[in-house]
Design a protein around this nucleic acid. Structure first.
Lengths: 182, 182, 182, 182
DNA sequence: AATGAATGAGTATTCATTCAT
DNA sequence: CATGAATGAATACTCATTCAT
């Protein structure tokens, strides 16, 4: 990374990617310096781009949401959306924690809204497909997501699969098995 | 009561009480020194009684479970058990985190077993009363508890009441309203 | 250990034995509490008997010297005396450190005098036997002891044997091989 | 010179200088904070430069060896080398301890090798000059150094001069008197 | 006289944040 | 703008010493 505005954008991206990795690997309390080092960037640059822990966490989470947005833009179904959330929550449970605990209300609210939009976009077809019961509102689906994601965040590695499977059942959500549908 | 074995027991109790407060107020990462100070004992005594953060957290959580055990021993219903869990999770969400993340597997497993016993004891009557659906197993109830408790732990203060209310609904759990029965 | 003056003597002995073990195992900076625990005695008792670290260290070293005194009383030769010193220094190098650094001048001087007496007692025969050169004074022998003991104290485990062997050579001291003479 | 890479080198040097002083004054167990304070840098900087006690001790000892290397490079004799060792050991006996006990094997071995090289470089002329007996190997000289240095490290201030003088004699080493040769 | 819990000062260590270059 | 060293407050943890029982 050298100088100039082009480099600035590159650094930003590198930092976000690094943050996703580091938070996944080391958890909520990972030292910010680890992120800078992983990104191959000075401490100062991390601070310039993201003045608080919440800011970098939010940006990392942002990338998660963006992934789902891309999925939906490509025609993904509600089931696939929920599946991806599940995957994200499983592989990096800390991210939820960091984002919720450190990014300001505003930021959290904004991320939540984007998720809501995605749910709303896929919900009608999802109802028809039987992914969720007919009477579920978007808020309900969002709540399901939160319940499952939070539980995943606090579960040990080996109990995650059964936990998530049964949780969906109790909540009336029907996802196809993990085995990629042919 | 400053020295001697009599004081030891008192100090232990004071430390546990302090830990419950401090973890509730300051969260998972509260400085252990704060617990010692709140309990009115020296740092060394905290370490003598509870050599690790997990140990004191486990003991504090223990007290939570003990409260529920007392409730059940006094004839509490499943609905009341769930209500108390909800209350504990709301007032001290951090405790779940600390216990899960710091007390060893063994400890966590043992606490979980005690909860299971309480659920099993109250489940039959709970089914009859309509607190939970007929087909719910004790494992299912336990899972409901975990889902709600985890979500509470990661929610902001003002969204907790609606969150928990709707969660129970989605999970098919029916609790009486919080308003104390006249 | 119960009470009364008989117990007091027992405790004292147990503490000294424990100190020899602990200093040997854990080195100079071993926590005094470890000695009390090993001796099966309360912290307070350790303090009653030995008010300072130097006091307990001195007493432990005392036991070392006493062992040699017993050896000489039983007709031990200078070579045997030096061999026992070597053995003590090898198995518990820390003791020298602790004693020298913590016991007061007076104590150290007194221990040194007792060693001198032992050397003087065995020196004449030692000269004849060729253990040390004819012209060695007791002071010289004492110095040899100090040189070798100090070096042992600061050597790593596996270099001790060659170190001590060659040291004696350079110093003109001739000890029989370790293999017990039949 | 407060920040930047230029200051880094200065700070490093200041830390090493401070460490030499502090270890000399306060011994092996001197608080690392004292070194930082003496060097006029923050605690963090000490840790950045030297992550362990052994690292800073090794660096300090390193400086000792470097002094001798400079001496040899300037044509110093074996006698002068031994004299400088004696001086270093006398003025800062702790350094030997710290280095041996805390710097890893590798480090210690490397320092020892450098000393060996210096001895080997000056030994032939030293033999001719009568500083050491003809038959002494470099290993022998090294051993003499260790014996004397260790003993100095564990001697009280006022016995050092006679101790070291007589030690050299017993070991067959002949150094000129301390009085600077005109 | 013995016990062992309580104390709290002392030290190591980490890391968010700043800032000279 | 980027860098990465410097900072120092915050925290964990240990252990010598005291003292009520």
């Amino acid at each position: 990374m050298n100088r100039g505005p082009a480099a600035a954008a590159e650094n930003r991206a590198a930092l976000i990617a690094a943050a996703r990795e580091i938070f996944a690997e080391q958890g909520v309390d990972a030292p910010l310096s680890a992120i800078a080092k992983r990104a191959g960037v000075g401490q100062g640059s991390l601070y310039r781009h993201f003045p608080t822990r919440g800011a970098i966490a939010g940006a990392a989470f942002d990338a998660n949401v963006a992934d789902i947005e891309r999925l939906v833009a490509d025609g993904g179904t509600l089931a696939e959306v929920l599946g991806m959330v599940e995957e994200q929550a499983t592989s990096s449970p800390a991210l939820i924690d960091v984002t919720l605990h450190h990014s300001g209300e505003a930021r959290a609210a904004q991320l939540q809204e984007r998720m809501m939009a995605l749910i709303e976009a896929t919900l009608p077809a999802g109802r028809v497909a039987g992914t969720v019961p007919e009477h579920f509102t978007a808020d309900d689906v969002m709540l399901c997501v939160r319940l499952v994601a939070s539980a995943l965040a606090e579960s040990s590695l080996d109990e995650r699969v059964p936990l998530v499977r049964r949780s969906w059942q109790l909540l009336g959500v029907r996802l196809p098995d993990k085995a990629e549908p042919e």
